[in-house]
Structure formats: structure tokens, C-alpha cells
């Protein structure tokens, strides 16, 4: 880890002023669970770290406009512990409880979870986010891309979005508040993420001297049903191969409106209008859910090693829809006994 200046401002304005307007020169330290690892690997080499944990007003979960306001500095462990979230956004509570490990959840913030950088192993090994070989070809496309994108992978970005929570928040139609030298602004979460086209760009719309301050989740509504499904190799604490979040607004057994978002399939959380259309106006059963799963990957394109992700993304969408509508889904980890 390179050395750096360290500041611990006590107001948002101070914090913003301390940030450089150029990416890479300064970094925001919140939970640190992503940033410090990147710095140890010299993937990030900021000259200054701004610890924002002492900023006031960003640590609370509160009600706002009938919905939810989650301060960016709320640590992940507190989200499933919130009775309001457990009651009205149970799928969000479950999704957050599945993230990482207890120690990480005690440290990591929800804002940091949305701003974390990709886990692409080329990126993390210091080869760059869009690494190229000497002939200018993508190292990822030519190399081991088993965990890389199947959607939004026209290049040069092939990495996948790392957050396991963003797809659920995006499916819930969440918005985020950002603050920078120009003052605060508020954008839909789906516009917060974007596919970068050069190493200089980030995978979100944050400016280098902006801070994400709040996550706003709209009111749940009585007909809302939601579920998240992760496909991962290990029972816990494992980056999922694919995730799918489904939020349905039901009228009786009929889907009035659906939002289906996949994670770890594209450089951004992937909102699938195809999956949503496939179930809108229908009841969810094995057949409609499976059709929606197929629709979700209808535009997917495999790289050399990740064709299997197309299959499991379709399954994840199917199972998220089934779970959202209250139907049982297979769980391979529930088989057999424990030691």
C-alpha cells in the first residue's frame, strides 16, 4: 500500500472540498472493505484518503415520502436488523443478510457496497479494468473469462458488477442522492451505473469529488412481492456466479408490473425488460417463470469460457420469480445434514 494523507472531516462540505476532481488522486474511506484491498494490491493508489465515517446524518435508516431513506454510512448488518425493512422489504433484508460475511457486514456500508469496484481478476491483479495484450486484443476475451459478462459485453468492458445488493435495490426502483461541489443531485439507481468505455471512466456516474449520501427506496405497496436468488458455489461468503432480483406488483395472482434485475452478468446490474414483459399480465408458475428466464438471456452472448452463465442466469431469474410469488424453489444446500 502506498502512503497517503488522511483526513476525517466532520461535515459533508468539508469532505467534498477534500476530494480531488480527478479520479485516482483521492479516495473515500467508509467501510474500507473494498478500498483497502485495492490499495494493498496497488490497484488504487490515492494520495489522500477521506474518511467519511464521522459525517453526520448519513448513519440512519428512516422513513421518507412513504418509502425508505438509508444513509450511505449504514453498515450492512443493520439493514436486516431494521424491523421496518424486515416487515416491508423482507427480500432486501434477506439479500443484505446473504452478502459477504458477518465481519464484512459489520464494517461495510451500503453506500460503499454500491460504489465498490469490480472483482474482475484481471483488474484486481493490476492488469487494468479493460486489459489488452500486445496486439491490442482484450486479455479477458482471449483469456479466462469464466466469471465475466454475458450481457452488455460488446467491449471493451467485460467485467461484471460486483454488488449483490444493487440488483435488488434497482428492482425496488431505488434512487440515490449524491453531493458534490455543485451541490446535491438525485438520480435513479439504474442511471447511477453505466458501462465504461475507457480506463479513465468509472462504472458509475459518480464524479470524483462527489459523495453518495443516501439511498431512497419507494414505498412498498401492498401488492408488492419480491425475492432475490443467488447462484454461488459455496453456502456462504462467496461471490455469486449470477444473481437475480425480482419485484412484482400483483393484483391477485396476476402480475401487474415487474422489475427483474440480474447481477454479475454484465458490467452493470442488468434490468431485463424482456423478463418483465414475459410475466406481465400473467400468473407466475414454473412455465411462465422459465419463459421469463429464457427471455432474460435472449440477448446474452457467451465469451469463450462463460457460456454456462447463460443457463444459470435463466435459472436464477426463474427461481427469483417463483420465490417472489411465494412458491418453493430448489435449494441444494438444504439437502443432507450438517457435521
Amino acid at each position: 500500500m502506498n502512503n497517503f494523507e488522511y483526513a476525517s472531516p466532520t461535515s459533508v462540505e468539508q469532505a467534498v472540498a477534500l476530494l480531488s476532481s480527478t479520479w485516482g488522486e483521492s479516495e473515500i474511506l467508509a467501510g474500507g472493505t473494498d478500498l483497502l484491498g485495492r490499495m494493498k494490491d496497488y490497484v488504487s493508489t490515492p494520495k489522500r484518503l477521506i474518511n467519511i465515517k464521522k459525517l453526520p446524518g448519513l448513519h440512519a435508516i428512516s422513513k421518507e415520502n412513504g418509502g425508505l431513506r438509508i444513509g450511505a454510512l449504514v453498515t450492512l448488518d443493520r439493514i436486516p436488523e431494521s424491523s421496518d425493512i424486515r416487515k416491508n422489504y423482507a427480500a432486501l433484508a434477506e439479500c443484505v443478510a446473504e452478502a459477504a460475511s458477518p465481519q464484512i457486514r459489520n464494517m461495510a456500508t451500503i453506500g460503499g457496497n454500491l460504489c465498490q469496484r469490480p472483482r474482475c481478476w484481471y483488474f484486481r491483479n493490476g492488469m487494468g479494468l479493460m486489459p489488452k495484450n500486445s496486439e491490442g486484443k482484450s486479455l479477458v476475451a482471449e483469456g479466462d473469462n469464466r466469471y465475466h459478462a454475458i450481457l452488455g459485453n460488446d467491449g471493451p468492458a467485460y467485467f461484471v458488477t460486483p454488488s449483490t445488493i444493487a440488483p435488488m435495490l434497482l428492482a425496488l426502483n431505488a434512487r440515490v442522492r449524491l453531493i458534490g461541489p455543485g451541490g446535491p443531485r438525485e438520480i435513479a439507481l439504474e442511471n447511477f451505473f453505466r458501462v465504461p468505455h475507457s480506463e479513465d471512466e468509472r462504472e458509475h456516474n459518480l464524479q470524483a469529488n462527489e459523495i453518495l449520501t443516501d439511498i431512497l427506496v419507494p414505498a412498498a405497496g401492498s401488492g408488492m412481492r419480491a425475492a432475490n436468488y443467488e447462484v454461488r458455489q459455496k453456502a456462504a461468503f462467496d461471490w455469486p456466479l449470477v444473481t437475480a432480483a425480482a419485484v412484482l406488483h400483483m393484483s391477485g395472482n396476476t402480475v401487474q408490473n415487474a422489475r427483474v434485475v440480474m447481477g454479475a452478468v454484465a458490467p452493470v446490474p442488468w434490468l431485463s425488460s424482456e423478463a418483465a414483459e414475459a410475466v406481465t399480465g400473467k400468473a407466475i408458475d414454473e412455465e411462465t417463470a422459465a419463459a421469463a428466464g429464457r427471455a432474460a438471456v435472449s440477448k446474452a452472448r457467451a465469451l469463450s469460457e462463460n457460456g454456462y452463465k447463460i443457463q444459470i442466469a435463466a435459472v436464477a431469474v426463474k427461481r427469483a420469480l417463483l420465490a417472489a410469488s411465494g412458491q418453493p424453489v430448489p435449494n441444494v444446500f438444504a439437502q443432507g445434514g450438517a457435521a
Binding site: 447462484v231 458455489q233 444459470i312 435459472v315 430448489p330 441444494v332 443432507g336 445434514g337
Partner: peptide
């Protein structure tokens, strides 16, 4: 003794 999710390819050792 294993279980395999044939849709996702995940293997679980039960015993």
C-alpha cells in the same frame, strides 16, 4: 453422498 442441482451445476456434499 452428494446432491447436485442439475440446473445450476452446484454440487453439495451431504455426507
Amino acid at each position: 453422498d452428494v446432491s447436485v442441482d442439475t440446473e445450476t451445476g452446484i454440487v453439495r456434499v451431504n455426507k
